[in-house]
Amino acid sequence: EPLWIRPDAPSRCTWQLGRPASESPHHHTAPAKSPKILPDILKKIGDTPMVRINKIGKKFGLKCELLAKCEFFNAGGSVKDRISLRMIEDAERDGTLKPGDTIIEPTSGNTGIGLALAAAVRGYRCIIVMPEKMSSEKVDVLRALGAEIVRTPTNARFDSPESHVGVAWRLKNEIPNSHILDQYRNASNPLAHYDTTADEILQQCDGKLDMLVASVGTGGTITGIARKLKEKCPGCRIIGVDPEGSILAEPEELNQTEQTTYEVEGIGYDFIPTVLDRTVVDKWFKSNDEEAFTFARMLIAQEGLLCGGSAGSTVAVAVKAAQELQEGQRCVVILPDSVRNYMTKFLSDRWMLQKGFLKEEDLTEKKPWWWHLRVQELGLSAPLTVLPTITCGHTIEILREKGFDQAPVVDEAGVILGMVTLGNMLSSLLAGKVQPSDQVGKVIYKQFKQIRLTDTLGRLSHILEMDHFALVVHEQIQYHSTGKSSQRQMVFGVVTAIDLLNFVAAQERDQK
């Protein structure tokens, strides 16, 4: 057995438009009618409502009807409940999964919650491996369901041993009777949507819809739904939504950006999952974080739909894509998950301010006199920076000697690579993860907040409520011999709460 199987392995699926269902090699399930009293909570997966979006479509000038398939009504709160249950049931049916076995899954959280929910009911041990950027709410729900959680670096490539995929496979090879159901490759993922989600949409719309818009992560949702719609409703256009920084969209030119990270969760990847059939997507749109969270908040405030950030991405694209539809036509959007997962993220004004998705003037509360002053007023001194090749031991000596707790790590040209902190280095040394002679590049981390000289002290204040420091950066445009230009970030300084307090105190003292 291989040590790991690539999540982007070539698909062996034989589905073709027009091929009889009787030739399918898979076990198919028909939607079942729910009894009045459910035998367990797993029976509350599927049969989610279709809700008309009344205000947002009109606000953006849509002539067509805009409908939302509300997947956050599933038992675990997301569309991923469907595939989690289906993968477990299919693994039980073919004898792969037996009582007492362990389920391991690399996930952005929602599939993990679905699997942990099913594992709690069915009696399996469950280990979820997820990147650090995923919300604390997801972690809390997983723990409450009895799952064990392993976190991995957000910026690790999918084929790196440190990625959530790599760590999951390492655990599988170490733990007896453990299984990775593997949402990236498992046919049960798109089949769950082909058999149930798509049929529900067709039934709820009486077979009449002209466009379907869905955000894409593993691709199982859009693949399964689109294949069924292509068979039953061939005139329906399928629109895929991919965040900026991901590479799922086609044509490839759409993916060209210097951005590699994004805040919206559960969609987009740096590889093409095996289950994603991009041939059934008629057109791709890219979405960005700001519009995703703005539209998610709009869905909550104006439509009462308590959905997550990827739902915002989907609707932001839908109001663009559906401009081509006329009166009497219908566009369906998939709202994948609930706001429950993001209470401390985009639902929080403070978080939105820190990330730059909300401006101070958007909030009406009274601010102190210094709130709208610029960061450049602080008069920061030149920063202490270190090269990635310097040793951890030497870096600790320098920081202690100069009285700093942290320093930016830059390359020879001064471009920011990340940050090192005294606390992080000492804990890594004590844990045996690094040696004093190791290069400081081994303990770089990139989960820090950046701020510009033109940003306000109010925004800085919000950042420092949650973080010990902020890195002050400025952009530099560099022209190359080819005539092309590129933008790079340079370090201007490091600012802490002490710097802000000293500035405010000094100004008030001078005024007296």
Rank of each mutant, 00 (worst) to 15 (best):
L306Y: 04
V495S: 14
Q489G: 05
K446T: 13
F295L: 11
V443G: 15
D467H: 11
S310A: 03
G328H: 09
K442P: 14
L460T: 05
R459P: 12
V332I: 12
D242M: 01
N288V: 07
L248M: 07
T260C: 08
L426E: 05
V281M: 14
L378N: 03
V410Q: 13
T395K: 10
S427D: 09
L464Q: 13
V491I: 14
D277S: 03
K402T: 12
L453Y: 06
R278Y: 05
E397W: 12
S313Y: 01
L429G: 14
Q487P: 07
K484I: 13
D270V: 02
E475F: 09
Y269Q: 02
E258W: 11
L460C: 05
E252C: 06
A506E: 10
F404L: 15
S461N: 13
W351D: 01
G458C: 13
D362T: 11
G493K: 12
P273I: 00
T274D: 03
T364S: 15
E303I: 02
I444Q: 14
A382N: 11
K512E: 13
T389Q: 04
A322P: 02
E365I: 13
R350K: 14
G493P: 13
V264K: 00
M419T: 15
V332M: 12
G308L: 00
A322C: 08
S461G: 14
L501T: 03
L422G: 08
V409F: 10
V410W: 08
V386W: 04
A296W: 00
E291H: 05
I334W: 00
P383C: 08
L384K: 12
L429M: 15
V317C: 10
T260Q: 13
A497T: 14
E258Q: 14
P436S: 12
G308R: 00
D467C: 07
S481H: 13
A407P: 11
C331Y: 02
T314S: 14
A311S: 12
L378G: 01
F404M: 14
V315S: 07
V264D: 01
Y342A: 02
W370A: 03
L276Y: 07
R488A: 15
D277K: 02
D277Y: 02
A431Y: 09
Q259N: 09
K512P: 09
F404K: 05
V241I: 07
D455W: 10
L373D: 10
K359F: 08
M343G: 02
K446D: 08
G414L: 10
F285C: 07
S313N: 05
K286Y: 02
T496P: 08
E401I: 12
S348G: 03
H462R: 06
S246M: 02
Y269L: 02
I238F: 09
V409M: 15
P408L: 00
A301S: 06
G483S: 15
L353T: 15
V491Q: 07
G483W: 13
G432A: 13
E412A: 15
I398L: 15
P408V: 04
V473P: 08
E475H: 10
T261I: 07
F271E: 02
L430K: 11
G328V: 08
Q376A: 04
E263L: 08
A431I: 10
F285Q: 05
L384N: 14
Q406A: 09
K366M: 13
G458H: 08
S348Q: 07
V473Y: 14
I272M: 10
I498A: 12
L378H: 06
T314L: 03
D499Q: 07
S310T: 07
E258A: 07
T364N: 05
P368F: 08
M490W: 12
D510V: 15
Y262N: 00
V504D: 10
G309C: 02
V495W: 11
L460K: 02
E324I: 15
R330K: 13
G356V: 02
V504Y: 12
I247G: 07
K433D: 02
R374T: 13
D438M: 15
M352T: 06
D499Y: 01
N502I: 11
L335H: 00
G418W: 06
C307N: 03
W371H: 09
L363E: 08
V281F: 07
T454G: 08
G483V: 14
S381Y: 09
D455M: 12
I444K: 07
Q326H: 12
K442A: 14
I300V: 05
V495L: 15
S338L: 07
Q507E: 15
L248H: 00
A505G: 13
G379F: 12
E291A: 14
P243I: 02
D362I: 05
A322D: 03
Y262H: 06
A292P: 08
M466I: 15
D282N: 15
A301C: 10
T454M: 15
D282L: 07
Q354W: 14
T314A: 11
R452M: 13
D289S: 00
V375E: 05
